[in-house]
Amino acid sequence: MRTTITSFFILCLFSLNNLFAQDPPPQSVGVARLTPEVRNAISKGLEYLSKDGLQRPDGSWGGDQNRVAETSLALMAFMLQGHVPGRGTYGIKMENAITYLLNHGRNQRGYLGTPRNHAGMYEHGLAVLALSEAWGQSKNPRIKSTLRSAVDITLRAQNREGGWRYSPEPRDADLSMTVMQIVALNSASEAGIAVPQTTIDKAAEYVISCQDLGSGGFKYTAGGGEPNFARTAAGVMSLIMCGQRDRKATQRGIAFLKAFPDSKFKSTNHFHYAHYYAVQSMYQSGDADFRAWYPKISAEIVAKQNKNDGSWSGSYGQAYGTSLSILILGVPYRFLPIYQR
């Protein structure tokens, strides 16, 4: 389970103590089991993201299609290592990213997805998550009001089954989109935005309806699709975020992930997406599972880094691959509230 809001405040205070530091406090890294290679890989990745010209003048990262999503991921990648918006080496870039997301929301009455992106709710969910995580760290007073409007849209877009789909209207649902919204709502709730328990309960029921009874893996929708690693990681993460870690369905999903053969581990479809949720699921599952899991995935991610510029390739470009790789590697940092138990 996630920590309470109180502990989140403690974490923020901890971060505030270090506001004047130019770089992340080394002792905080010491609490996690991060090898020097991993720490170095994350730092090089962040240097890549902060390279001149990569972030646009409006504060965004990424191509035309998924700019909100890539900006959200990049912002979280910086926060992951304890960097604070407006302060230190990356402070201005982070503050600009927040401004970009807030402006985007202001222009669309709280909807944070890119209008021409048919799957805009992915972006909306990621942006809600990034802004919720940034709340309390940034001085920007607009975060909370934007989050309120954005969460309102998320709540209204939940369909009858309890899930979400591509657009902000309650018509259809799939697991991949639903996990984005559940994680975002969880984070927003920690940031003090009211999220009804019925929304979370309904979402959990939808996720469970996507479970394949035979294997314990999760399918794309309740009606069909075959279970696979990425969907199961998403399903497990969703249920844990809904406060249902001890439910049988969650435990079966975790068993499915743990039984996933090493031979397929490196080449699974949707590599970054799958491992982003899988590593968090394993972290939330408990120390023993995480200790067994993290060395495998961190070695794999480090090996995939471009040694020349510190970037990672990803399905949607370097910014996407680099941000998600950092978010996978950096779970032990625990600076992001979402990475707390």
């Binding site: 009874l213 035979g214 294997s215 314990g216 279970p227 049988k248 079966r252 068993a255 039984a259």
Partner: peptide, 8 residues
């Protein structure tokens, strides 16, 4: 399914 190791 719930009793045996995946994938079943």
């Amino acid at each position: 399914g719930p009793l045996l190791p995946p994938p079943g």
